[in-house]
Write a protein that binds this DNA or RNA. Structure first.
Lengths: 223, 223
DNA sequence: TTCTGACAGATTGTAAACAATCTTTTCAGT
DNA sequence: ACTGAAAAGATTGTTTACAATCTGTCAGAA
């Protein structure tokens, strides 16, 4: 696992993010500055900066004078995350219905057609696992025309979702159902029906949570 | 403007945040590392860390190899901010209606009673300016029982709001109206009516934006 | 045996020096 | 006078060294 090129702060941040999301760095694992500095053939400065960036992205936790660890996402965290998504993404769907052009909604339909192929190819619910679901949600967020919402979702919440899924190994088989819900949402967006688009997105995310919650160990860390 | 005690990273971050929000550091102003290091009697390391923290909090912008500047919030930014608030805070109100205890809603009413005194004392619309409005919204966010929503609002969005208001000097006189809207929201929360609470909060924030938008120069920086 | 406290090792926090990049100035050429 | 390139200055990015803090171990007393 040796790094070849001499990277610097931004690159190291990206590398660590990727490794965490890929599951190469396990939740709870310590991220020592010296160890990482040696691994990247760089001094502690850039590593330190990268670690702070991970903490800000909520992918790691920092205890002052002690160190940084890969974040562990418990049941309460996951629930909060999905509640937040309900508010944020229903707003994104609402704005998308207000602003998306006909060409954009067409592209969205094409995206779902591609997903349909994936679902039939891997019927055992690889839809959500393979990131197709995230693709759809990112596009809707982009169509909202709101840079803040797009950034929040794609750069903060979705990485946390990936981390959570990896930690709890949920391979939920909601592919077919989710795809149908996606189509209804696109219909509402194409109809310029803000209220319905927001409502359907809210329900979609809530259904997703209801299907996912039982898969998460209730080994409840309260705090 | 000399600092007395030898502060370190976290303290410097807090100091700079306060100064930006207090308007002592104007939007667009450069935040040079060496200058700040001398001002705080500290080396560039902690200053650098504090600056990155400001950038993550969206209170400053970073251009690599160039420097950090206090963030300028244009019309498009303000609009995006309020759209985001609609989604986030209506969700907070919904969750508050679901979870707040009777004691908590009572305290919320008491808070508004206190605000009523402030409004009658300063009838010229000092309500929103004095932070009373923010107080209410923070409490509702807390009552949502969702730590992520609370953190996002109180530590990211509201500081940006303060910065925006300072930049555009909006002293909107919506005090009496806003207070009444607040009371209706509390009523819905006390009634455990999630839908109405969410709807009223959404309208409240939208009204706030409609009253505020004209006050912002449309000297549109497109990007 | 178990708890307390001090010491040693390791790790994070900060300071100071060096390297790389950008900005501004200067000056030659048109 | 104006354009453009090159050099000087200033600023950020990185490295190295030092200080402060924490964790774990071990001796000693209850």
């Amino acid at each position: 696992m040796q790094e070849i090129a001499r990277l610097s702060a931004a690159s190291i941040t990206a590398s660590l993010k990727d490794e965490i999301l890929a599951g190469q760095l396990l939740p709870g694992q310590r991220l020592g500055e010296v160890a990482l500095a040696e691994r990247f053939s760089v001094s502690r400065g850039p590593v330190r900066e990268a670690l702070r960036s991970l903490v800000d992205a909520q992918l790691a936790t920092l205890v002052p004078n002690v160190g940084v660890r890969v974040r562990e996402i418990g049941f309460a965290d996951a629930q909060a995350l999905y509640e937040l998504r309900e508010g944020l993404e229903s707003e994104a769907a609402r704005l998308a219905a207000r602003r998306a052009t006909v060409g954009q909604t067409e592209q969205l339909r094409l995206l779902l057609d591609g997903h349909a192929v994936s679902v039939t190819a891997h019927p055992a619910g690889a839809y959500l696992q393979s990131g197709s679901d995230t693709d759809f949600h990112v596009v809707v967020a982009a169509l909202s025309g709101n840079p803040m919402i797009l950034r929040l979702l794609s750069e903060e919440l979705y990485p946390q979702l990936v981390l959570m899924r990896r930690q709890h190994q949920n391979v939920q088989g909601r592919g077919q159902t989710a795809l149908m819900e996606h189509r209804r949402i696109v219909d509402a967006i194409a109809d310029r029906d803000e209220e319905v688009a927001a409502l359907l997105m809210r329900r979609h995310i809530r259904n997703s949570w209801l299907s996912l919650a039982p898969q998460i160990e209730n080994g409840g860390e309260t705090k």
